[in-house]
Amino acid sequence: MSDGKGPQVTIKSTDPIGKSLSFVLWNCDLALANALRRIMIAEVPTMAIDLVDIENNSSVLVDEMLAHRLGLIPLISSNTKDITYTRDCNCEEYCENCSVVLNLNVRCDSDRNRDVTARDLVSSNPNVTPYFANEDDPGVVICKLRKGQELRMRCIAKKGTAKEHAKWSPVAAVGFEYDPHNRLRHTTYWVETDALKEWPVGPNGDDEHEIPVDPNEPFDYNAKPNRFYFVVEGTGVLDPKEIVEKALLIIHAKVVHTMQFLQKMKW
């Protein structure tokens, strides 16, 4: 970077339940910022149910729908480094090293319908359990059972990334913005009369108030975006801070891997 300092991060706010984090990445290139965004969405490994052995399913939901719903349940994934990818594991289908088994055995015997929720999943690994916002959180509803209906199944959670399937994504959404006042003129606002009046300026716009907005300011053709406003909204499986850290580590690992590759190569 021109000032020699490299990219900087300023944390703006974290939300009280720890699900989202907003920060500013500045003194940084657009490519790097977008890479961070993409990696946070798609490449941070998490745990999710991938295989379901259904022993009995007498509920109204068909097997594949039930399996699909189970796959989307967020599982706490802070300790993914201890778990290997199945593809890198020596085992045939799955084993303790590359998977976590969650059992679901529910039967409704009362006259009232019973909600089967993520609370009913019994994990073989205390580090990989369904995510609950707090003690009172009843958990994600998987299915409802009426009297006599039963679910009996083994769910095998595996480590994976959202590149493969969205269920492994640690984030619900990643907010990403630069140049809230459109000084770079990357976009043209569609207006009836006045862009300033018709286009609401988001919270990030206020952030740039320290830099005065002068409508008569001459346009700088060489200007490049260098402040990027991120909002990382996690699904709960990982702390947003962790998501960012892990994403950065993944970038780092990619660069290191390339470096190693280059070094090994005989030029």
């Binding site: 490519a31 043209t188 018709e198 609401p200």
Partner: peptide
């Protein structure tokens, strides 16, 4: 929409997911 803090006409500035660059048009 305005009350919810969005553009009156339903437009939004959007970014390319591939490059991260803001689109020329909203």
């Amino acid at each position: 929409l305005k009350a919810a803090g969005f553009n009156y006409h339903g437009n939004e500035a959007m970014y390319s997911g591939i490059t991260g660059q803001e689109f020329k048009a909203d």
